[in-house]
Amino acid sequence: MQNNMKLYRGLLLLAATAILAVTAGCDPQGEKPPTAVSSSASASVASSSEKPSSSTSGSKQEAPKSVEVELYYPDATATKLVSVKKKLDITKEDKYNAAVHALMQDPKEKTVTGIFPKTAKLRSVRLQGDVAVVDFDSNIRKGFSGGSTGERFLVGSVVNTLTNFPEIKKVRFLLDGKEIESLAGHMDLTEPVARMNSLME
């Protein structure tokens, strides 16, 4: 009996160590430093106090307060993505984060519908070359409607909105900072996703 107890304890210890070892090696992102995203060169800047300024006095130039962006929402019957122009406040965050944050709010327009679960949170959008890395928290899975169509339209609304910025060609999706393979079990999201033109027809 005593021996047995010792054996169990030993096994437990071993299992605990194994679990630690596995979870420790579980960050596939490899801590890539996020690229700073402050450029707004290509967006149609709609700042209220925009003045033509020389390139040398850049430090004195007032940052634009808002930017007009095309957001892509699904229509109510999920037949296609529909673009809606919105002015986004970019005083607190860059236009990429502002655009995805705006997408996640249910639209007021009757012609389109929200696809994001209400509890989902955006952790960050950052640029790695021409790939936008969009990191959601795991609530995006919990409250999600699912379905091939649901999954394609959620992914498509983010990808098509972000690839509207000419500097972004593809979008990679993360969940809680970790790479994912799928969102609802249909799409293969192991690689960055290019613009989904089939959802625009």
């Binding site: 699904p74 109510a76 019957t77 519908t113 409607s145 699912g146 379905g147 091939s148 169509t149 649901g150």
Partner: peptide
């Protein structure tokens, strides 16, 4: 074999991939 789903209940119909 799957069943489809969407955030709005008005989406309906068959699709194959």
């Amino acid at each position: 074999v799957h069943c489809n789903a969407f955030s709005s209940p008005s989406a309906h119909g068959v699709e194959t991939y």
